[in-house]
Design a protein around this nucleic acid. Sequence first.
DNA 1: TGCGGGAACCGTAACGGTTCAGTAGGTCTG
DNA 2: CAGACCTACTGAACCGTTACGGTTCCCGCA
Lengths: 367, 367
Amino acid sequence: MVRSTNSRRPATLASLAAELGVSRTTVSNAYNRPDQLSPELRKRVLDTARRLGYPGPDPVARSLRTRKAGAVGLLLTENLSYAFRDPAAVGFLEGLALACEDADHGLLLIPANPEHEDVASVHSAGVDGFVVYSVPDDDPHLAAVMERPVPTVICDQPSLSDIDRVGIDDGAAIKDLARHLIELGHRKIGVVCMRLARLRNDGPASPERQSRANFHVQRARLTALSEAFAEIGVDWEQVPVIERFDHTTESGGSAAAQLMELDPEITAIICTSDILALGALSEVRRQGRRVPQDITITGFDGIDDAERVGLTTVRQPVLEKGRAAGRLLLDAAESSGKPREVLLETQLVTGSTAGSPRSVEERWFGP
Amino acid sequence: MVRSTNSRRPATLASLAAELGVSRTTVSNAYNRPDQLSPELRKRVLDTARRLGYPGPDPVARSLRTRKAGAVGLLLTENLSYAFRDPAAVGFLEGLALACEDADHGLLLIPANPEHEDVASVHSAGVDGFVVYSVPDDDPHLAAVMERPVPTVICDQPSLSDIDRVGIDDGAAIKDLARHLIELGHRKIGVVCMRLARLRNDGPASPERQSRANFHVQRARLTALSEAFAEIGVDWEQVPVIERFDHTTESGGSAAAQLMELDPEITAIICTSDILALGALSEVRRQGRRVPQDITITGFDGIDDAERVGLTTVRQPVLEKGRAAGRLLLDAAESSGKPREVLLETQLVTGSTAGSPRSVEERWFGP
DNA sequence: TGCGGGAACCGTAACGGTTCAGTAGGTCTG
DNA sequence: CAGACCTACTGAACCGTTACGGTTCCCGCA
C-alpha cells in the first residue's frame, strides 16, 4: 500500500524534537504528560507531528521502556482457528475478551500447533501476561510460557505448579451426571472422550492410559466416572472408553459407532463434551436407534446447540470462565503470594436424551 | 504468582554474557544464528541461561530492533466480545486466524469501543500490520490505523483510500436477491438494516440518512436495493427502512414489528443480515403470521443458523474473506505499488422463507 | 614461508522511546 | 531583598536487543 506523507524515513520523536528545536523529553511529554508543558508548545508539537506524519510514540519502543505491552496472550494448544470453531472455546474467548476490554488491553492469540514443538511464538509474544487454556500438562508451549517472567493464569488444569488458576470441579460435576444415570438404572455404559495425550490416538483407551492422561480435564472426568460407578459395583475395567483426537461431531459419531460395535449391550453413552455427544446422537439415530428409549446419551459443557436439541449434559459457565481468567490476570491486587484459585459452579441439565434403560426383553420384544 | 528461580532482577542477555565472559553478540547468536559459534560454546550459553532462569531474548526489545512484531492487529469497531458473538465475524476471524497461523504470526484483537474516541489502543498495538473489519469510514480508530506506518488491509470498505482491500460486490449480490423477490411478485417491501452511522439511531432511516451512511456495506446494499426496485417503478421514498444499532436477533425482531406496524401492507421484509432476519422471523411468527405464505423474509451472510431454518439469503464466504485479508497482509509480494483488491463470489440461497405474495383478498379472506 | 580464506567471536551503534534529577527564570512571601 | 517555590523545559541514563563491520586465529596450500 502507499502512504500519503512519506519522506525517506518515518519521523521519530527525536526528529520531531530536532525540527521544533526542543528536547525529546518535551515531545514525549506532549503525548504523555500534557501538564508538563505549556498548552501553546504542546499544540505546536502536535501540529508539527501531524505535518510530518508522525504517528505518535512507537508502541514497541515505549513498551520496551515501560515494560508494559498492553496486551494479554492467550495460549491454547490447538490450531488457532479451533478457537473459533468450538463453541465452548468461543464462549471462553468472549469472556476473556470482555475482561481485556475492561482493562483496555488487547488480546493476542498465539499460534501453537499441538503437533509442533516450536515454541518461538511464545517467546516472541509481547504481552503482559498469559492465559493458558486447555493444554496438556506436558506441552512445551506451556513450559515456555512458564519461563517467561510475566504473570500467568491457567484454565482447567490441576494446581500442580504455583500458578493462578480458573476452573470447575470436573469430578463433582460429572459425578452428578453419573449418579443421575445410575438412578435411571444404567449399569452398562460406554464413554467417549476427547484426546488424552499429545500424540494422536483414536480408539479404545485403557484404564492405564486414562489415568496417565495429560489433559487434566479429561483425566479428572474419567476418574470421577470410574469412582461413581465403582460405588455401585461396576468394574471400570469392563467399561469401554473410546478416545478421539479431533474434537468434532464426526469424531463423536464414529466413536459412538465403535462403542456400540464393541459392546452392543451398553445402555448409555457418556461423552465428555457436547460436541462429541451431538455427533454420537446423530450416529445413533442414523443407525435407527431411538434416544432415549433405546439408548441414553449425555454431554458436557452446555453449549447452545446442546440446549437446542435437549441434550442431557452438564452446563459450565464458559464465558464466566474466560472473564474470570482475564480478571485474575489483570487484577492489580495480584501477587498476594499464594496462587489464587477460582472455581466456578456447574449445573446438571436434565434434557431429553437420558432415560431409563429398558430391560433386555423390552429391548428385543418391545414394551 | 510465584516464580521459582528469581534473583532480584531478571537475567538479560547482557548479564548472561557477563556471567559467561563473552560478548552480547555471541549470546544473541546462540539463539538466533547457531552457525555463528561453536556448538560447545552455544551449549554452554544455553545451559547457563537455564541456570540463571534467562527465558531467551526479550520479545519487545527484539521487536524494537528488528522492526517486526510477529503479530497482526485486527481492528473491528465493536466491543471486542462482538467478534465472538456474531457468527459472520467468527467465521471471518477463523479465516484470518488460519492465515496468521500459516505465517506464524499472532493475532492481536484490538479493543476499540465504537462509542469511544480513544484511539490509544491502536497507538499501542505492537503489530506488523492491521486488518480492518467493518468499521465506519469516519471512525477515529480507522484514521489512527492509517497513520501507523505499517501495511493495512481493509474489509468491506470502499476503495476510497489507496489501501489493499477485500470484499464482495454487495450491490450485485443484493440485487440478485431483490430481483428474485421481484420475480416472485413483491412490490411492497420493507427493509431492516444494521447501523448506518456511529451514533445510535434505532428507527426509520430516511433516504438521505441511507445515502450518507458511514458503513459502506450497508450503504451499498441499500443503494442497490433502491436501484433494483426503481427499475420496476417502485418509489424508494415510500419504502420503509428501519435501522438498528445493535446487531442482535432482538433488534431484528423489534425492527420487523416496527416495520409491520408502520406499513401493514408490506409483503416482504429484506434484512441486511441473517441475524436480523432470524430475529424478524421469530417476531413475525410470534405475531401469528406464516412465512412465506403471509410474509417473505430474507437475510444476508449465509450463517449456519440461517441455513438450518431455510432462510432465503445471500451466502458470502466469510471464512475466505478473513483468510484473504490475512494473506494479502502477510504476503511478501506486497507493495507492488498499486493497492490490491480481492473480490469474492457470493451466492443467492433460495430457502423456504420467500414466496409469492398473496393478493390482498387472499390475505384477508384466505385462498 | 607467505598468504588466502573461513571459523569464531567481538565492539559499537543503533532501535525509539521514558524517566528522573536537574536548572533557569520568574513570582510569592515575610 | 533573601529565600522558598513554582513553571517550563533539558540532559543523560536506561530499556534489552540485533545489525554491521570488523578482528583474531588457525589451517591448507603453493
